[in-house]
Amino acid sequence: MQDNRSQVRKVLWITLLLNLFVMALKATIGFATGSLSLQADALHSITDSANNILGLIANRFSSPLPDREHPYGHQKFEALGALGIAAFLGIACFEILKGAVERIAFGGKPVEVAPSELWLLSIVLIVNIFVAVYERNVGKKIDSPILIADAKHTTSDIWVTVVVIAGLIGVWQASALNIPQLRSLDVILAFPVAFMVFYSGWEVIRDNLPWLVDEMAIAPEKIHRIVMTTPGVVNCHDIASRGVVGRQVFIEMHLIVDTSDVQTAHKITERIEQRLAESFGKVRVSIHVEPPDYESDDISFGSTEKAEL
């Protein structure tokens, strides 16, 4: 398996510098205008920078190549890094909601926005779009979960920034249009901003948790159909799989073949491995060849009932 960690590091360093620039710009304008939603958005951008640093740390330990201490590779380090991103998103969501509730309950300094500040925020939006597209494209190209997860986070940041800019435009026009209610947009929009942050974190968890808990990667029935149509196979049972399709999948099975010759049996198993790789991408298959007396109708390994948690 190819080691793409150097490419991941390059992307993370570039996006870290851009995120620090965005964070500083948002924080400066947020405190200058007194905008709660923009300060919350700056907090969101702090997590972007923290995510890049976390990604660099995780990348240091996430070699896909197996070694003596980690015979199944190190890719779970990247999944752990992605869950760390989700944790940062949860913290950001809490801080946004806390600030909004405090503003509603106790009030605060009125928000004042100038056109020049809105133009500066448009630069922030352009940088965020570039970072999200850049990370997502490279992440998909080299199959890096940490880059894909961070790209999702940055995509949520884009929508957060759009919402915040829309609210600040409303605040800016409140006096001109003689609609004082528009000044409340800054606090009101802090709530959907928090929801967007929360949903982004949930997506990261959903995509990476199956890898960490060894959830079934491929239905045993799908594997069984492919194996049983391979010439020379008599029976296939006790099939198990884990990992993530498209990233790395480990497959185990017990097999009975129509031959007593070891070399012929080996060729049959190699053919099975090739067909599974063609169907599911990166797979590492472990096949236990058994004598005819061990034939079984149990396709799945273990109980077919879901365990009660």
Rank of each mutant, 00 (worst) to 15 (best):
M1E: 10
S6Q: 14
Q7E: 14
L16D: 06
F21D: 01
V22P: 02
I29H: 04
A32F: 09
A32C: 04
S37E: 07
Q39V: 13
A40N: 15
A42E: 07
I46Y: 13
D48T: 04
S49E: 00
S49R: 02
P64R: 11
H70R: 08
Q75F: 07
F77I: 08
E78N: 13
L80R: 10
G81F: 10
G81H: 14
G90F: 12
G107L: 09
G108T: 05
S116M: 11
E117L: 14
L120D: 06
I126S: 07
F130E: 06
F130Q: 05
A132K: 08
Y134M: 11
Y134L: 09
K140D: 09
I142N: 05
S144E: 01
P145I: 09
I146Y: 06
L147F: 12
A151T: 09
T154R: 12
T155L: 15
S156N: 07
I158M: 13
V163C: 12
L168Y: 08
I169W: 08
G170N: 02
V171S: 09
W172H: 12
A174L: 06
L177K: 06
L177R: 08
R183S: 13
S184P: 00
L185P: 00
I188K: 07
P192A: 04
P192E: 02
R206Y: 05
N208S: 12
N208M: 08
N208A: 09
W211R: 13
P231L: 05
V233K: 08
N235F: 03
H237Q: 01
H237K: 00
D238F: 04
S241D: 02
S241G: 05
V245Q: 10
R247W: 03
M253Q: 13
I256V: 14
I256G: 07
I256M: 06
T264G: 00
H266C: 05
I268R: 03
I268G: 01
E278D: 15
F280P: 00
K282T: 10
D297C: 06
D298N: 15
F301T: 00
S303W: 02
A307C: 03
